[in-house]
Design a protein around this nucleic acid. Structure first.
Lengths: 345, 345
DNA sequence: CGATTTTTGATTTACGTACATCAAAAATTC
DNA sequence: GAATTTTTGATGTACGTAAATCAAAAATCG
């Protein structure tokens, strides 16, 4: 049977109250006694029963999640995952408030962070935009002792506690290597579609992709990046224009959202088999396109993992505990039509 | 504030005892009263506090894990993950016993399953070997009401509750598609190295690989499968022989363990860049070979995920709860040098 | 209707920890 | 050695649920 505080008290020859004082380092214990108790804890291998402790404390963790609005499928999926976490909040003793802000709008985001601060939560998770006012708002939260985790897109230069997202330079590199190898002997330029160079994750992916392509397929020319603002309709126009302008187009890398537009444009052109297309995020649309062969590979970050990781980190920070970095690292998943999970993410 | 049993009692106008009877469906409650209580539960949105419930029940889950012996890195990693779970057992209320049996030995495995039965655990997790005596031993456990989960390698035809591992046909297909696309315009046959056709996972991978290669690279001839029994030394001999016999070898797929032998043979031959090599399981050796370019891609199943999933499922079965299949599906991870996680699995 | 069975209420103990209070003992100071 | 401060003990309550007991009330039966 697992040792309890009573066992420690007996073993150390002290009272329960003293054990409690040591365990929760309350004052009023001589060092000799403290040592005795700590030795007993050590030899018995006592581990505090967190469930019982939380029950006794009736602790709760109020968190705020700030997510972008818009009909981008990935972000909607992320919101759904936060909602799922909210549903679990009863048993996890978290109280999650979700706030939506206009996408790509630094001022609105900074304002939302300010309002979150007024709620005095234990922690805030935010899909960041890389702008000075956002950095300032995050730092203000931290100054109030509120834990902050960036989600999906990071905010380097701020005092955020943690980034719950993938290494986007590595993601871009992965896409570049796959593109280079899939192109094989083919000739022709490669196009790149981004959402916005305002967000850090897109800039990072571009950097990684360009570098890896230069290594794995140096003879392929990269066309200038076009920005589709993660809007399917805009992406479709851009890609159609690219396809028309470059009859020898060998590949397309969409490093942002708006895959519906990419897929639509490719299939309308009838060149979906000749053009090697790589994109991000597994959604019902991208999934179908991967199966049909319009998309050749898909990189993915698991939104559910990211949300759960963010919550774990926020809770740990709220308790003043350390975070095991390796355990919270979000993986870059590669999907081909053959290793698709049965359920759409 | 979250509702408790007291709130339900008050709302339904019954006593605490009656609420308890309904919640744990004990006998002695009229349907009218039961309905009243259930309506109160519904309207208040009551969710049982599992932590408090487990505390009150002081429930514990004794599990037995049966793993193969041998110095195969993946299996050692799996054992380490089980050990890590054992370390967490204090806070998770599990009591895990680990048993090691000789690899590829159906009789020994069946005997171990029999011994596990004598311990009367709540559940057993086992790396299965596809043999009739093993099926019989698993079915005997199930007949005793002991939950059984197969780990890594499945046992179809048995009464096991769940398989905590990847879809190995899909894994083989993934390898086949990657191989086909990576080969690009190259010519030459492709070799396949397996561990043993005795275990289901290897047979499944072979099937998937052959099918996908036939689709994506039909002109490449597949050489007859050779078996290396997951032993690095044996794999090295086999691969060296293959390399010598086929100067035009285009690719090698190692669907079993023993990557050290594969890597050694390739690097000794000096043909590691010409031959496209795809293997399974991320280990320090395979990781280094991926970075150096000796291996071109690596498929992986996360042993930690598998162990934790197995425990979740065993616990759910022990409590008579349903398992959310989609949540327990283990993904087939693809690693290129660019998306390697920072820490070796 | 009374007798019997079934259903319900009231109450208590327990799980392992947190936290508070007050008294008792020990150590320290003068 | 007395007065003071610090340390320790004893004890109780709380968290939300499980589980048991015994009495009381209600329903059912003959």
């Amino acid at each position: 049977m697992r040792p309890t505080v009573h066992d420690i008290a007996a073993r150390a020859g002290v009272s329960l109250a003293t054990v409690d004082r040591v365990l929760n380092n309350r004052p009023g214990v001589r060092k000799v006694t403290r040592d005795k108790v700590e030795r007993a804890i050590e030899t018995l291998g006592y581990v505090r029963d967190v469930a019982a402790a939380n029950l006794a404390k009736s602790r709760s963790y109020p968190f705020v999640f700030i997510l972008p609005e818009g009909d981008n499928t990935f972000m909607r999926g992320l919101a759904a995952e936060v909602e799922a976490a909210r549903a679990r909040s009863a048993i996890e003793r978290t109280a999650i408030t979700v706030v939506f802000v206009p996408a790509f709008d630094p001022a609105a985001l900074a304002a939302a962070l300010g309002q979150a601060r007024d709620l005095a939560p234990a922690g805030v998770a935010v899909v960041a935009i890389d702008a000075p006012e956002v950095v300032a708002a995050v730092d203000a939260l931290r100054a109030d002792g509120i834990a902050v985790v960036t989600l999906v897109s990071d905010l380097p230069g701020s005092a955020r506690d943690h980034f719950a997202g993938v290494d986007n330079v590595a993601a871009g590199r992965t896409a570049g290597t796959l593109m280079g190898r899939f192109l094989g002997g083919r000739e022709g330029p490669v196009a790149i579609v981004a959402g916005s160079m305002l967000v850090r994750d897109h800039r990072d992916r571009l950097e990684g992709f360009s570098a890896a392509m230069a290594e794995s397929a140096p003879r392929h020319r990269l066309l200038p990046v076009v920005e589709g603002h993660d809007e399917p309709a805009e992406v479709e126009r851009l890609v159609s224009t690219l396809l028309a302008a470059h009859p020898d187009l060998a590949g397309i890398y969409n490093l942002g959202a708006g895959n519906r537009g990419l897929i639509e444009a490719l299939e309308t052109s009838g060149r979906q088999k000749e053009v090697c297309a790589i994109a991000h995020e597994l959604t019902p649309h991208s999934r179908a396109a991967l199966i049909s062969g319009t998309l050749d590979a898909l990189l993915n970050q698991d939104a559910g993992h990211e949300v759960r990781s963010a919550i774990r980190v926020l809770r740990a920070r709220a308790d003043g505990l350390a975070v095991i970095g390796a355990q919270e690292r979000i993986r870059i998943e590669i999907f081909l039509r053959d290793n698709l999970p049965v359920d759409p993410a």
